[in-house]
Amino acid sequence: MIIAEQKPLDEIKSMIADYQKVLILGCGTCVTICFAGGEKEVGALASALRMATRLDGQNKEFIEATVQRQCEYEFNEEVADLIEEADVVLSLACGIGVQTMNEQFPNKLTLPGLNTAFLGQPVEQGVWDERCQACGDCVLYLTGGICPIARCSKSLLNGPCGGSQNGKCEVNPEIDCAWQLIYDRLQALDRLDLMMEVKPAKDWSTSRDGGPRKIVREDLRLTFVEEKQS
């Protein structure tokens, strides 16, 4: 799931400084679940912004709405009237939603109210951990199901480095050493052989390093049949 958190109020305030009527638009999927941009957060942010801007002597208007998934045109279309009405949209979706909005409503600027943080797991109520870096070439089958790309501070494929101490990473004692976790898991599975080989340099071209990525499934495209016929 995409994990995000709200931007500091001051940053949001300065983003909307030039606009009078602001639509705060939440998203009902990932960012709802991580308490960053669901209907509840939209309401709380609207409340906070009404107070903050009034304290600054402004008289801004805030409209609140939440769509099911802001990364889809169809859902955003449902609030097209509100978007039309607003001077600017403050999106509480992830960066994908913000861009969808900007693309779908080219005459209206949509601002990001959140910082999209990472792909993670809600490990307990109120705690989210990064789990995947979307490198595009999954190595979990080699590492006991624990991702060293996302979870090792240095993304080592041949860890653990000398900074592993008591199961923690040298970068921050809050971080588990991914390679200690991998070692423990493989040992439990009696598959330590997977750690004995030198893993070669990774092909990063499937990751962000290869440029923006795209997946096309021709078979699923609604234009598929037509194209073949023409």
């Binding site: 500091p8 109020l9 001051d10 709380a44 906070a48 107070m51 903050a52 304290l55 109120g126």
Partner: peptide, 16 residues
């Protein structure tokens, strides 16, 4: 307790 903590933080950010 958590909710009060959160709102206190918001109030700080708001300036109240």
């Amino acid at each position: 307790q958590g909710k009060v903590q959160f709102v206190k933080e918001v109030l700080n950010q708001v300036g109240l």
